[in-house]
Every structure is written in structure tokens, then in C-alpha cells.
């Protein structure tokens, strides 16, 4: 490749990245202006009266902080359950030949789309009611996990499929148990995939409204996605000041989690595994 061509390619890449940045940043501007505005509207403008009043108002809300803690609890609980259970299942399904395995997995994935709607809330509520898990965070974690697992297994299996089996074979020669092989060989190599699943799970839980809303009664247990929907008037009009302010706080933990998970578990440069 000639130098000129390389320079042009480089420039094009940077222009593309700059455009993409603008595209993704632009809608977020509202989140940076509205919380500091006395009376925010549907439009981005420099606040006429710069104020922290909205944050103070939120500070007086008896549920604001607790709801973020609840979101973290639900997110972490579901994430742990989904990642561990999906990793075990994906590994087994990747290494054991079962006819129709992929079709079965995809069938489950399709079913998981059925239970997202309101129609499914009736069976889910009655089920959790019979199990005595109404108003329990654990019940919410179980329901959310059930819905997320098929996609998690589906994704993770792809990652584990790409890990060559020769590693496991040599480990077994040295007497390692399957669980040890999973922990010490498969998990480290599949880390970026696991991190992806973990982040994805937390994001799904973070935005989940209907399931916790229906299954939890005590407002002190409700997560932030439910709380953000309380900032409306009796007539159904949004209180944009509180919604934008809370949204700003609400998005911070997930971004931090992503940066943490990704710097710790993602982006591992490939250690010379040959397939």
C-alpha cells in the first residue's frame, strides 16, 4: 500500500469516527442541559437560569437513592446467575453433540420474546404468586434470568465453540476435572464473551420496568426504572426537570460498570491460540 493511500485511508477513518461520535453524542446533549435548567422543555438550549435545584429536589425524594441501590442489587444478582448458569450450559452444549441442539436453543430464544409483553404478565404474576415470591427481589431475579438465559447461552456458545479443544485435552491428560477445565482454560479464553454477556444482562435489567413493577409491592424495593416513571403529574405529563436529572444519575453506574468490566475482562489480546 502506498503512503498516500494509507494517509487517505487514515483520514477517512478519522472522519468516519468523528461523524459517528457526533451522531451518538448529539441526542445526549439534552441529558446535559435539561437537568440544570429551571424549566426544561423538549429542546436543547443553554439553561436560562443555571440551577442545581433539580438535584436538590431529587435529594429530598425518599426513594431516589434506594432505587439505584435496588437496581444494582437486581442487576448484579441477575448478572451473576445468568453468567454462571449460561456459561455452564453453553460449555456443555458446545462440547456434547446433541442432535437438534441449535434448533432447540433458537426455539427457546423465540419463546423468550413471548414473555416480554403484557399478555405474559398474567401467567408470570400467578406463577410467582403461587411460589410465594411476590414482593421479593429474588423472584424478580429469577423471572428476569429465565427470560435472558436463552440469548446468553446462544451467544456464549459461539464464543466457546471457537476455543480449540486441544487445550482441554491436554489438561485432561494432566488429570483436570471438567469444572477445573472450565474455570482455568475455557473461562479465561472466553472472557470477552463473558464480559459481553455480563454487560448485556445488566443493561437489560437496568431498563426493565414491567416485571419489577408488577412483582414488587414495597416501594423501598423498586428499582430506578420504576422510580423514573413516577416523575409524572396526575394528568400523565412528565416532570422533565426531575426525569432528566434522575436519568443523568441513573446512567452513571452502568457506564462505570461497562468501563470497569471492559478494562478488566474485555480486550484481552489473544494469547497465540491457534485454531
Amino acid at each position: 500500500m502506498s503512503l498516500a493511500k494509507a494517509v487517505v485511508a487514515r483520514i477517512l477513518t478519522y472522519v468516519g469516527i468523528a461523524l459517528a461520535t457526533g451522531f451518538f453524542a448529539l441526542p445526549l446533549l439534552w441529558l446535559l442541559s435539561a437537568p440544570f435548567d429551571d424549566s426544561p422543555s423538549y429542546g436543547v438550549h443553554w439553561p436560562s437560569h443555571l440551577t442545581l435545584h433539580n438535584f436538590a429536589a431529587l435529594g429530598h425524594n425518599p426513594y431516589a437513592f434506594g432505587s439505584l441501590v435496588n437496581s444494582v442489587l437486581l442487576g448484579a444478582g441477575t448478572m451473576l446467575l445468568v453468567v454462571v448458569v449460561a456459561a455452564l450450559a453453553a460449555y456443555a452444549l458446545s462440547r456434547v453433540r446433541i442432535p437438534g441442539r441449535d434448533a432447540l436453543l433458537y426455539g427457546l430464544l423465540l419463546l423468550s420474546s413471548v414473555i416480554t409483553g403484557t399478555a405474559a404478565m398474567v401467567p408470570i404474576f400467578l406463577l410467582i404468586f403461587q411460589l410465594g415470591l411476590i414482593d421479593s427481589r429474588f423472584g424478580v431475579v429469577l423471572v428476569l434470568s429465565g427470560g435472558l438465559l436463552p440469548a446468553a447461552i446462544f451467544l456464549l456458545k459461539d464464543f466457546i465453540d471457537t476455543i480449540p479443544r486441544s487445550y482441554e485435552e491436554s489438561a485432561r491428560v494432566f488429570g483436570a476435572t471438567p469444572l477445573q477445565i472450565l474455570r482455568h482454560i475455557v473461562v479465561p479464553v472466553a472472557r470477552p464473551g463473558l464480559a459481553t454477556i455480563a454487560v448485556w444482562t445488566v443493561v437489560q435489567v437496568w431498563g426493565s420496568f414491567l416485571t419489577p413493577f408488577i412483582l414488587l409491592r414495597d416501594p423501598d424495593k423498586q428499582p430506578a426504572a420504576v422510580l423514573v416513571r413516577t416523575f409524572y403529574t396526575e394528568g400523565g405529563s412528565p416532570n422533565l426537570a426531575l426525569i432528566s436529572t434522575f436519568s443523568l444519575l441513573y446512567s452513571i453506574p452502568v457506564v462505570l460498570m461497562y468501563l470497569f468490566a471492559w478494562s478488566r475482562y474485555g480486550f484481552r489480546f489473544h494469547g497465540g491460540i491457534k485454531s
Binding site: H60, N61, P62, Y63, A64, P219, L227, T230, F231, Y232, T233, E234, L242
Partner: peptide, 12 residues
């Protein structure tokens, strides 16, 4: 127990 669609710091 009383339940209503209202919440301190939010709707109603």
C-alpha cells in the same frame, strides 16, 4: 394496607 397510584416525591 392502603394502595394508591401516588408516591412521595413523584406522581400525586
Amino acid at each position: 394496607t392502603i394502595a394508591e397510584n401516588s408516591i412521595s416525591g413523584g406522581k400525586n
